[in-house]
């Protein structure tokens, strides 16, 4: 099926089978491999992308069902080769271990901070409850989100 959607601000036309997930389309057709494929069941969050600004598990969404939508992946967060404030905060807080879950974490955190710019620690934990880190390095991830919130505040 021929579909068109916006990915990281660019109009994209794709031809995909109806059963192809958005995650497969991004990784295999668009070579955007930042969103990771791990559980393929919506449990781990490593494939998190934004659809019209809202975080979703790209493995549970069919590409043909997001025609005309605005998709943002980790590749679309920075501008002009610079990391976004949230990405930089993750680096500075030392939140990254093996790195596999990071794009999902950062995409979730970015959407969350857009809605809740001054979150409490508990709100941060709840907002990231759909993103698993098997290195179990959550403490610095929460530190990173708090740091990003602080840097983004006017």
């Amino acid at each position: 099926m021929d579909i068109s959607l916006r990915i990281n601000g660019e109009e994209c036309a794709l031809s995909v089978p109806a059963s192809r997930t958005l995650l497969e389309a991004l990784r295999d057709d668009m070579a955007l491999t930042g969103a990771k494929n791990a559980c393929n069941q919506g449990v781990c969050g490593s494939c998190t992308v934004l659809v019209d600004g809202m975080p979703v598990n790209a493995c549970l969404v069919l590409a043909v069902n997001v025609t005309g939508r605005d998709i943002t992946t980790i590749e679309g967060l920075g501008e002009g080769g610079e990391l976004s404030v949230v990405q930089q905060a993750f680096v500075d807080a030392g939140a990254i271990q093996c790195g596999f879950c990071m794009s999902g974490m950062i995409v979730s955190a970015t959407a969350f901070l857009a809605h809740n710019p001054m979150p409490s620690r508990d709100e941060i934990r709840t907002a990231l409850s759909g993103n698993l880190c098997r290195c179990s390095g959550y403490v610095r991830v929460f530190d990173a989100v708090a740091l990003a919130a602080q840097r983004l505040s006017p």
Partner: peptide, 23 residues
Amino acid sequence: LAGGATLVAMMNADLVEPSALVS
């Protein structure tokens, strides 16, 4: 097909193979 939270997860696991989806 509503959101696909269950249906696409089941398709990913080869548990269902619908002939067509009506979104």
